[in-house]
Structure formats: C-alpha cells, structure tokens
Amino acid sequence: MASPISKKKETSVITHRQKFEGHTESVYGAIHLPGGQRIITCSSDGSLRVWNSKTGKQIGEDWRDGDSAVWSIALSPDGKKVVSGSGNGAVRLWDIDTCKVIKKWTGHTQGVESVCWSRDGQRVLSGSWDGSARQWDVENGETMPEPIETILASIETGHEYVYAVVYSPDTTLIATGGQDGPWAEEPTEASVKIWDAETGKLVATLKGHTDIVRCLAWTKDGKTLISGSSDCSIRIWNTTNWKQTAVLDEHTSVVYGIAISPNGRILASASWDNTARLWNLENGQPISSPIQHTDEVNCVSFSAGGKQLATGCDDKNAYIWDVAAILREAGLDDLLSDPQANKSALHVCDTLI
C-alpha cells in the first residue's frame, strides 16, 4: 500500500525531547496523564513511576505492590485511575492521587500482557498467557487489601497465549490477539479473534498474520481494527466485513505496540527493530525516518493533542518525541488538524488518547 519515502527523509535524525531514567529493567508501558505535565510508566522491575514530562525527573516514590513485573498499564477514561497487568497474573487498580492500589483482581493463572478500559469506565478487560480474556467490574467489590473477585466474564480464547485485548468503542465486541499454537522454533499460527462481549461467543477469526499478534487498536468510529505482529507487519481490518484492507511492512522485527493519534490520522508503532514509526493512516505511507532507539521499543502513546509521542524501551528508559516537529519537517503539518466529525480516534486501551 505504501510507497517508499524519500532517501532524504530516511537519513534525517530524530532526537528525543525528553528522557526518563530510573527504571532498572525494561519499560513496557508509557502513557500521558491529564494536563500534559506528567507521564506514567511501568516496567519489568515491578514498579510504576510518575515523571515530570518537562524536566524528566521522577515525581514521588515508585508505585509498588509486590515484586512481579508490570507488563501493561492503561488510564481510565476519567483520568483518575490506572489499571496494571502483572507477571504473576494479578490485575491491579491504582488511584492516581494516592498512588495506592484500591482493588486487586485475581483469577488469571499466568502473566497479564494487556489491559483495556471500556469507554464508560465501568469495565476492565485483561488478556493473559493463560489463554483467557477476562472482564472485571470496576465499580463493585471490596477495597484492598481483601481479594477482589468481581469478574464479569471469562473467555477461553483458544489462543495458546493472549498478548493483546481491546474493546470495540461501544463495548459490544472484544478483539483478542495472540499465539494459537505451542512455542516452536519456526513462526507459529496466529490470528485475531472477535468476540461478543456479553455472551462470549466467537464472532469472527481474522487470519493473515504468520506469527504472534502482539498488539491491537480499534478506531473510535468502530470501523477499523489494527493489529501488529511478530511477523513484522501491521495489518488493517474493515470491521464491517472483517476483511484485511492494508499491510504496513516497513519494520524488520516484532511490532510490539501501536497507538492512533487523537484525531485518527496518524498511527504510531513500536518495534523490536529498535525503532518507533509514524504512519499516515490516510494513505498508509510512513512519515519521515524511523525514530531510532538504542534497544527494542515496547510501547507508544500519544499526548492528548497528538503533538508528542511517548515510548518505552528495553534500555530501561522512556522518551518523549516531538511529533509536531517531525510532521513539520516532513511537510505534513496538516495531519495534526482536526478531521471531519466522522473521522476516527483511538479507543482508550494500552495507550492513551
């Protein structure tokens, strides 16, 4: 779909606007908090940390509840809570003001790779290496430290491992992505599956990826689903007929995270080829040169206005990049403008609107 960008654009160097140093292991989540002055990150070092986005300095102490790796985080629609998924299978709900766990959901028997909020903030969706996707009731249940078992439903997906989960914008559907067969030296079968959120029944199976489906994003209008995979590709799906409409294949290693800009016109991707990329969703072309990192990139997140991009990396750091400057250099400033009312924007999930 995409045509090669010019050699001149490929050779330009993109520098980060801010760097956040302090985690002692890989950073797997980095999202912007309301107000534009802070970001929050999570790491396999077992902590969540809040940072001043202007100075790069950590705000307060680490957030910790046990020693297990924290693989995923998502901000609530009201901006007051964060949900996290841990390597020991626990899903935790954190209060941003107090920096404390207010609920803990148990039930997964293996690590939780992905968490997602429903748009109304009443449900949390989690996906685990145990092959299940679970929905949790946010409003009901006891407060910590008592165990919370407010599970609404559990879907045995048929994936050997679930790596990605996302609600449709109206919360009627759930998309799951993962690995469909056992571990093997060669790439394994993988698919995206669509489920009825109320009944747990399978609606559709989307085939095309040839290796693990690592990440998912659903556009706000519900018409498009995007997936990233270990096969190095990003695939775009029409949710009216569940047909694949495009393949973006500039990455040379695992695509581990994706995010759509608030106005729905730009896609960001994080890859284990040590880069993040920006894509023009209106024509499928990459924007400017890859955003180079010193190690594998695990996550991407746009700021509320879409002018900044946060990334988390295996080099133990998080970064903020100036999207506006990148677009300006590429002569694509208009991609930050507000689209028509029927254009898409990312539903709140592993990455923030």
Rank of each mutant, 00 (worst) to 15 (best):
W136F: 12
L152I: 13
E146F: 12
V124W: 01
K81M: 12
D120G: 04
R123S: 11
D97S: 15
S126V: 04
S132W: 00
S132F: 01
E160K: 14
P169Y: 15
N140K: 15
L125K: 01
I155A: 03
H108A: 00
V124F: 01
H159Q: 12
L173R: 14
G178T: 05
T172N: 14
G79K: 03
K104C: 12
K104I: 10
T150G: 11
Y161R: 15
T143H: 13
D97Q: 15
T109C: 06
S154G: 02
V83N: 02
P145R: 05
S132C: 10
K104G: 15
C116D: 11
V112A: 04
S128E: 07
K100F: 05
W136H: 12
V162W: 03
P147Y: 08
Y167L: 11
L75E: 14
D95L: 07
I73P: 04
E146Y: 11
D78Q: 03
G178V: 05
G89V: 09
R92I: 10
V112N: 06
D170M: 02
D95P: 07
P77T: 01
C99G: 13
I155E: 05
P147N: 06
G181P: 08
V166W: 05
E139L: 09
L125G: 03
L173A: 07
A153F: 09
T171M: 08
T109I: 09
T106D: 12
S114W: 11
S118K: 03
S84Y: 11
T106G: 11
A164T: 05
Q135R: 07
T98M: 10
L93V: 08
Q179F: 08
I102W: 05
G87R: 14
A164D: 08
E146I: 10
V83L: 02
R123H: 10
P145N: 03
G181I: 09
V115I: 08
K104W: 09
V101A: 12
V82C: 03
S126W: 07
V112K: 06
V124T: 02
D130H: 01
T150L: 02
Q135I: 10
K103G: 04
I155M: 06
T176M: 08
E142R: 11
G158K: 05
